[in-house]
Design a protein around this nucleic acid. Structure first.
Lengths: 144, 144
DNA sequence: ATCAGTCGTAACAACTAACGTTGCGACTGC
DNA sequence: GCAGTCGCAACGTTAGTTGTTACGACTGAT
């Protein structure tokens, strides 16, 4: 499909900030998170920027700057993250419009769109069932 | 996400062949299908080649050649098509492995993989619920 | 036996998205 | 004023998707 890793990295960042804050720290830097996720700080800032626009995190500038959670991990779901960082549908339609003079060409897009909409609804419902608190718990469970 | 249109085009092709055969024709050519889908015959042949390997269609070579269904549309589901034409997961992990010396970096991949596996199972179940007969019925319903 | 029509497949071009990287201005606690 | 960090633009690299051309292989019809 050529899936991207945005949801994964964003969840990683949120779990990292949440965990770090529970250790008593106020803010986390993009540099620290990038080091844990093995990527570039700018990639992290871009993703966290999306999450900030969605109201999931806050950023502080200047000296002693960094990122903190805007809400509890319990109140964030993977759907919140997905909608913040992911745009566009799961399945694409034809690149060029099919032949409208053909019954199949004429009806295929509405038909498939209806099916895809139903599937995306179900995907959203599943993502909404997983909180970032669940994710962090699963993450920490691996080390036990 | 950068979704592709393979599932859409493959379903289009199958619906087209099924419909065409019900009009009394034996085989459909990639040229005809490409014309309806507004794409290139080679693109269609590539996709139908995948479907042939999955046992959904058959091809005949030589003069009077073309494609026909290997099974009834009722017995094919979108899951069959999806598995034939789509490779790889819905969501990607980190491009480079996260820092294994960090608790979050160490636990994030197993945690997310478990979640993603569950979601893909549900996606598959939904796709398996839609037969190509359903698709063709929906397609033709648009013109009424 | 030849021919015309179609598949099968390789090769390549065009386009796009994702990701990484650099650079630098803006901001702010010390 | 300075050091540390964010915000953001710009660009390069890589990879995936789709379109296109080309040509050999195959086969029914004549």
């Amino acid at each position: 499909m050529s899936a991207n890793s945005r949801l994964t990295i964003a969840a990683h960042a949120l779990a990292w900030i949440g965990h770090y804050q529970r250790l008593g720290h106020e803010v986390a830097t993009s540099e620290q998170i990038a080091s844990s996720a093995n990527t570039n700080p700018v990639v992290i800032r871009r993703l966290l920027g999306d999450l900030r626009r969605a109201g999931l995190v806050e950023s502080r500038r200047g000296a002693g700057a960094g990122w903190s959670l805007a809400r509890e991990l319990e109140s964030m779901t993977l759907l919140d993250v997905y909608e913040a960082v992911e745009t566009g549908p799961l399945f694409a339609m034809h690149r060029a419009a099919p032949d409208q003079g053909c019954v199949v060409g004429h009806g295929i897009q509405p038909a498939m769109q209806g099916i895809y909409d139903g599937i995306e609804d179900i995907l959203r419902r599943e993502l909404a069932d997983v909180t970032l608190e669940n994710v962090l718990r699963d993450v920490l469970a691996v080390s036990r």
